[in-house]
Design a protein around this nucleic acid. Sequence first.
RNA 1: CGGGGCGUAGCGCAGCCUGGUAGCGCACACGGUUCGGGACCGUGGUGUCGAAGGUUCAAAUCCUUUCGCCCCGACCA
Length: 555
Amino acid sequence: MRFSKTLIPTLRETPADAESASHILMLRAGYIRQLAAGLYIYLPLGLRVIEKINKIIREEINAIDGQEISMPVLHPAEVWQATGRWYEIGDEMFRLKDRTGRDMCLGMTHEEIMTWLASREIRSYRELPHIWYQIQTKLRDEARPKSGVLRTREFLMKDSYSFDADEEGLERSYQLHASAYNRIFTRCELKFYMVESDPGMMGGATSHEFMAPSPAGEDEVVLCSSCGYAANIELAISQPGKIEIRDWNFEEVHTPEKRTVEEVSNFLKIAHEYFIKSILLISNNGPVLALVRGDQELQEKKINRIIGEYRPAQKGEVKEILGVEAGFIGPMNHKIRIIADTCLQKGVYVSGANKEQYHAKGIRPGSDFVAEWHDIHIAKEGEFCHKCNAPLRIEKVIEIGNIFKLGTKYSIPLKAFYLDEKGLEKPIIMGSYGIGTARIAAAAIEQNHDRDGIIWPKSIAPFDIEILPLNINDRNTVEIAENLYRDLTEKGMDVLIDDRDERAGVKFKDADLIGIPTHIIIGEKNLKEGLVETKNRKTKEVKKVKVDEVVKLLC
RNA sequence: CGGGGCGUAGCGCAGCCUGGUAGCGCACACGGUUCGGGACCGUGGUGUCGAAGGUUCAAAUCCUUUCGCCCCGACCA
């Protein structure tokens, strides 16, 4: 492709609205333009990257017998009403009416529609299993689009769905996807982890996420480098450091105006981990007291899985329900449900005395209070793996893919049944598997860039080679450049030739910004000796090569 | 949805506090010199100052409302 005939509007200055590296560089290097919050135009270079990624995805999903189909973006409400998600999902779903007043929505995912299709087309166990997928635009009215292409309201996603007769089949489809995903992200040359994740609204029991480490990521994962344990921080289990068991007798201590763990800890000269933090929550089934150790935080997702929907109690409610001001709550002598973090099972602690201006020292779990024991704290860097006891570390990550076992959550309400060998009607067992194409591109940039610009992995770069004829007014330069352009293209390489009448400096700067892996620099002086230069964008290594050996070297 | 910030030329910004009718850099056009890391000199064009309303002799500037965008948080199939 010729630079002079391609829309590659590079920017010298950093756009004010961009913050993350991928956002800044995609704008500056002329890959994308923003239409509105969370809506992006993919310019020629951007589109090429997306297409390269999609090609890899197609090859790998086809290889596990996935069949590509294409589904409408506009959906009738009834299908979503059948599964209840029409009502469960709030403002995140774009809704509209057609001219006859019929309720419609824009597809934010396609479980419903895929299942609807399966319900019509699959009759017998003999037709199973199936994997259907599409690479299609999804629309979600995100509360907060951010970080350029990382979180948008309209985005391209590969979503596949598996249909099996039983759990074993689902497990097989799930593993096929896990291995396909590993190949896809490996081919895209990303650093990534496969981690345990919270199935959340998708229902079902098992799910994993594929996470690309990057400071621009919105999620965090907990990793054990010793045994390989890896989980989303929303559900990661960790063992806090052990503490000594003190021989304190139970006593009430006057702690005037000392409310927070920090304040009482300083006042009594006792470390945070000897405290019990009591947090009052209001669930749909009444108040719940959650207890975590003083040096820990409550993991909201974990408690959510135990008690369902809830909200933190307001100050007035604390006094009303527990009879004491927040800041002096302790776990003793309450009639409400108490859920305590498992690490509190052993030890002797300090907490509120349930009496204004007093804390209690020498609290013994089990005898001074009873509780349900669950892991409800947020895992922290330096805590220990519950499997192998090695120290854990935490990394920020970008979610680039996920796989879910859905079971029958969609097949039952949408009546996707099949007849088994005995003629019994059974619901199809499903899985759903997503990959965000643009997030792969963004993650690749986040993980591979330098001061000068993008450094694309070879597999997803918009072009393989960029030719830089430095002076296009020199006949020899142009001739050699054009010959190389033709020969390399004929060999199947994707080649961009910077045929603009620009100064050499401009071409170098733009080439580095755009980030094509290999540059061929054609300058008059070297040409006089029959040489051109090849430059590796990543290592910056430059080699002088004879003109007629270039093609052989690069193909 | 809560908190914060910003809307002035294509892009990046100054001017606003203390009202007097808009400026700088880059980009763009033309001419000349230059030509291997975002050249230099000269000339030139460019704005409903996000929008609406108000105060005032006079509003980019003060007041009110509203829209948009970014950041933090909440949310996130």
